[in-house]
């Protein structure tokens, strides 16, 4: 029993100590990771004065919002199509999942090659398209879990009571699967905000389409400044909130 608790403690330390260190360093006045110079909000002030970071943040939010909207629409319809039409086709199920498990670097290279082949101008829009590709898979997977306890006869009941396809979808199917759609969208949004490799490959030259993860990467080449620690603290906080909301939504939906 004691060993189990010790093991759990070690595991949590291993998982969260680096994050705790990062967050505490963001309040370190000295600016050096090895010396504690006292508590300070200095780096947060500097962060908010940095225009480059704000530009990157705006880019990230644009990419995340637009790609999430597109991906949740397509992903939801895909999930509904697979579940309601009872498509039990291994090829379709497989192709839907592939963007989730394919290594990011492979996807990044393939997307870049594809964009180059069709002579597509790179920029924010190409990042958006690339993020839509993998986000569709995640949204679809999350929405499909909503159909686990779904009584298909309620769709027929709606038809039977005089509603056609579109009315049935808006009035019956969508409200029932909506917690799943929301959870999927939140997941897609966080994935898009955090995503680096694919954005890095498909952003094109120039700094106009730099996203936040890309900016952090370029800043880190000149040493980890406490500004980055402060920024990372914000990103961690943001990701946690969204992830917990998403988990809760899906949990509630399973109960109901």
């Amino acid at each position: 029993m004691k060993f189990n608790k010790l093991y759990l403690l070690l595991l949590f330390c291993f998982l969260y100590m680096p994050i705790v260190v990062l967050i505490s360093l963001s309040f370190n006045k000295s600016g050096l990771p090895t010396v504690w110079g006292g508590f300070s909000f200095e780096w947060y002030v500097k962060l908010f004065q940095n225009e480059k970071i704000f530009k990157a943040l705006t880019n990230t939010l644009i990419v995340a919002t637009v790609s999430t909207l597109i991906a949740s629409t397509i992903g939801t319809l895909l999930a509904v199509g697979i579940e309601l039409k009872k498509v039990r086709n291994n090829i379709i199920e497989g192709t839907v999942f592939i963007p989730m498990i394919i290594p990011d670097i492979v996807m990044a290279i393939s997307l870049l090659s594809f964009f180059t082949l069709i002579q597509f101008t790179l920029g924010l829009h190409s990042i958006i398209i690339s993020h839509v590709v993998f986000n569709i898979a995640f949204v679809c997977a999350v929405v499909r879990t909503r159909f686990n306890h779904f009584d298909h006869s309620i769709i027929e009941a709606s038809y039977d009571l005089g509603a056609k396809n579109i009315v049935t979808f808006i009035k019956i199917t969508l409200p029932i699967i909506f917690p799943g759609v929301l959870a999927g969208s939140l997941l897609a949004f966080t994935l898009s905000v955090d995503e680096f490799i694919i954005a890095f490959f498909t952003a094109g030259a120039g700094s106009s389409s730099t996203t936040l993860p890309m900016l952090i990467y370029s800043m880190i080449r000149f040493g980890v400044t406490p500004e980055i620690n402060a920024l990372s603290t914000f990103i961690i906080l943001f990701s946690f909130i969204i992830l917990f909301t998403s988990l809760r939504l899906n949990k509630e939906s399973v109960i109901s």
Binding site: S153, D160, L161
Partner: peptide, 18 residues
């Protein structure tokens, strides 16, 4: 089905849960 003057009472009742 949506144009028929018939209605079906489903075995599972199929009430709209929301």
């Amino acid at each position: 089905p949506y144009n028929r003057p018939t209605n079906l009472l489903f075995q599972s009742y199929a009430l709209f849960p929301h």
